[in-house]
Nucleic acid binder design. Structure first.
Lengths: 108, 108
DNA sequence: TAATTATATAAACATATTCGAATATAATGA
DNA sequence: TCATTATATTCGAATATGTTTATATAATTA
């Protein structure tokens, strides 16, 4: 974990390299605060696992947290993360389409 | 490595979660074909290591390859990857600035 | 055909990630 | 104070990743 810009960039992307974390960020895509309990129900994840993933994202600055009573709420720290997500999704789906066309033509 | 959209998205981001691969994609940011040898010199990586990283990226569809004589050339498959990179960089740098302001004020 | 060049693949090892189980803590209510 | 609720932390096992060394292959040149 060096501190050059490539490592920083890679460390940030590491946050996005797990399906649970992607899903959680999608649940938070509206930019609003979400309590842990809600995400646990919706996502169907184990409590410890969920808490660990939230902690990773918080540590990397991808989400913010606030405490209210005994609940903890999280929200996305920067909506450009969602914009980047949508670009990556577009890349994935047009890649899939391209592979589909190849398949039709007998390529692979 | 399941095939739902969250896993696909995560697997794609995994490609971007390593500083060597980020650097290589930056070297290819112009969208042109680059021979392996050039990237090896510029990046200063070991031959096998470089080859493996290129292979990972190619396997995930992030880059394309073509062979000419004994050289192999690679290029980015979709420039939206670079657009996503730039968004992430912006997130990183404004996060850094925000932490800087906090630091000034005695927070952390 | 033998040597050289450019790149890929395999094997071995160290390190990192992920998950579940158990336990801890903090806020609230009885 | 004791119990309950909501969340966090710790630990260990399984799996994944990254690097290096050695070897393989394909194209070219002598």
């Amino acid at each position: 974990m060096e501190d050059d810009i490539y490592s920083l960039h890679a460390e940030t992307c590491k946050v996005f390299s797990n399906p649970v974390r992607i899903r959680l960020l999608e649940l938070m895509r509206d930019g609003k605060w979400h309590p842990v309990g809600e995400m646990q129900k919706t996502g169907g994840y184990g409590q410890a696992n969920l808490s660990q993933h939230l902690s990773v994202m918080r540590g990397r600055g991808a989400i913010y947290s606030k405490k209210e009573g005994r609940q903890v709420f999280y929200r996305i720290s920067d909506m450009r993360i969602i914009r980047a997500f949508d670009l990556i999704r577009a890349v994935i789906s047009s890649g899939a389409k391209a592979r589909g066309r190849l398949l039709e033509k007998g390529g692979y």
